[in-house]
Design a protein around this nucleic acid. Sequence first.
RNA 1: UCCAAAGUAGCUCAAUGGUAGAGCAUCCGGCUGUUAACCGGAAUGUUGUAGGUUCGAGUCCUACCUUUGGAGCCA
Length: 432
Amino acid sequence: MPAPVTTIAALSAHEGQLVTLRGWLYNSAGKGKILFIQLRDGSGIVQCVCNKAELGDELFEALKHLGQESSLIVEGTVRADTRSKLGFELHVSTARIVTPATGYPITPKEHGPAFLHDHRHLWVRSRRQAAILRVRHLAVQAIRNYFDGHGFTLFDAPIFTPNACEGTSTLFETDYFGRPAYLSQSGQLYGEAGAFALGKVYVFGPTFRAEKSGTRRHLTEFWMVEPEIAWAELEEIMDLAEDFLVECTGHVVEHGRGALQELERDISILENVRKPFPRMSYDDACKILAEIGHPVDPEDDFGSPHETELTKRYDRPIMVHRYPTAVKAFYMKEDPANPVRALGVDVLAPEGYGEIIGGGEREDRIDVLLRKIDEHKLPMSSFEWYLDLRRYGSVPHGGFGLGLERFVTWMCGIPHIRETVPFPRTIDRLTP
RNA sequence: UCCAAAGUAGCUCAAUGGUAGAGCAUCCGGCUGUUAACCGGAAUGUUGUAGGUUCGAGUCCUACCUUUGGAGCCA
């Protein structure tokens, strides 16, 4: 009678018992008549001890010559052992080789990023990559939990869109039965329609940007969550962004401690993400930058080196609000107290991670909106449906967009965004 | 799009303008406590592509391709 199947993550509950594990050979080390196999099953890695005298010559020799990532099923006794990182190891009584593998390209030694990304379909098997993808999963879970638990309704926006949402970014054009269609660069305008229908909604889906940005903070395809709330003004949007980030960070830390430790993340920095986040106007941020020796032209948006210098001064995310209207999207509401400033807010993550959230209050007055569409030289006909939202019972409203991968990059404390998605799409990478 | 750097064995990298090298991976052998094991042996090359300079080019020059980092733009 075969021993019951379990997983490596659940091994501690089976100490002293005979169990079956199914997995892949992560690494092995022969020592004559004893063989150590590091078995990976997706839930963890455990050392399996094989003894020649107990397994017999034929099986022992077969296991000894098994290449990295060969799949196998092992049956053995779970034993506590202080020499194992896991605290347990499996003393193998028998094994079955499912599919032997030879020449697995990703070895335990170092590799360059181009090679690893060419083998992304295999690279995701490695400990570090698996840990990052677990953090991503927890981040998505936290985001859904937060909005679902705060009265928001999921409101899906289309991915094929007839025109630019903002008119600024470059879009991916596709052939839609003979006419052009564009991959969505934001679900926000549709989210606004949802907010006037359902009160509080969130759009959560993939977003596409054809900008030729080849930096460690950019993907051409990424996931964005965009809450949108009727009756909300800028202060309420900032309160929401703050509460949301505290909750999501807390969820990742609470449930992802093991993964974060695998990534050698300094968890104390994430535990520091508590209210209140420092809030400052763009003009005040410019003053601070000037004081610390990084002056900026206040009518121009500051760049990413300035952003980094600013965030270095704080131990938690900061919120910069009221940017110059001229550099912001047409739909952003002008500050009635100072029309050259817009009621927008960026949330900048600490440790140099920078902008993870952009949002604010939307222009709710149709006459101003008509003027802004004209000023931005956008095709009025494309926005007729959007203008209808102002024609039929417009109210103050707003929201923000969080870049999922940027949030995950920060949670993991890793240098590059491309490792936070299973198959990254960047300016020069479309495969695998 | 702009600026900078780099392309040599399956991988990571060496090689003063003068015979193409090492470690790892692979294959063979040895070892009863390894953790990126160790020891011995074997095999591994159109030096990104196309031109050019030179007696001679991996090395110098030009163009192109690819990759990496950064800027702008953004989440």
